[in-house]
Amino acid sequence: MAYSDKVLDHYQNPRNVGSLDKESNDVGTGVVGAPECGDVMKLQIKVSDDGKIIDAKFKTYGCGSAIASSSLATEWLKGTSVDAAAEIKNTQIVEELSLPPVKIHCSVLAEDAIKAAIDDWKAKNGKKTEEK
């Protein structure tokens, strides 16, 4: 089974790889893992005073789909609002990257990472996290 061209593109030219200062108050960090495959994904957002995501970075240790999912997520996050970011669903990532069923958990990981980063930023800035 082959990876889609979009996955390959993100895998070979990942966007926004790197780190933001996790101690900074305007940065939210999410680190999530998929123990069954030994993947780790770190996703960070930098948020402006008016709740816009002005920067996003990721580091992922895992398969091509996990890297592509997090790379795509950072592209989508940049320039959007925190509220809109919270609405990103793994199914959108699956669709955009044409992920096969066995790789859906990679997109779930990316969604979890986005939520964890938002929660971290909210906790730092005294905002209540919505009950799930």
């Binding site: 680190v31 999530v32 893992g33 998929a34 123990p35 069954e36 780790v40 770190k42 580091k59 240790y61 964890a116």
Partner: peptide, 13 residues
């Protein structure tokens, strides 16, 4: 028990 401590995951990374 799949949710692991973020500190551990950071170290793993």
């Amino acid at each position: 028990n799949k949710k692991l401590d973020p500190m551990f995951l950071m170290e793993a990374l």
